[in-house]
Amino acid sequence: MNTREQLRMLILAVLERQPEHGYAIAQAIKARSEGLLTAREGTLYPALHALEAEGLVESEEREAGGRVRREYRLTEKGGKVLAKARGDWQQRVRAVGAVLGGTS
């Protein structure tokens, strides 16, 4: 899984919980990864636009507190793609873990 695919999976995982706008998605990725992963705007929005074009997320402009924000939400198709990506990822982690060996 390259960096771009990884970002796509992270975005879908964030949106699985609830619809969010771009900045909140970037913050959620940073917070959940304890600062290890960052999604800068430069790569985040092209990735969001691509996901939307593929029908994995959909967006809608919403006004909150006098500010207009484009909110992204996961589609059913996006949920299926996320489930598959998650399964593949866990399989890969188990395989690498088995080769590296554990401390316990």
Partner: peptide
Amino acid sequence: AHLQDAGVPEGADVRAVLGDPETT
């Protein structure tokens, strides 16, 4: 909207928040 949410002041250098514009 992203810059507003990030609290970046008007006229400030935005590369730290937005990254390289060529990548975008």
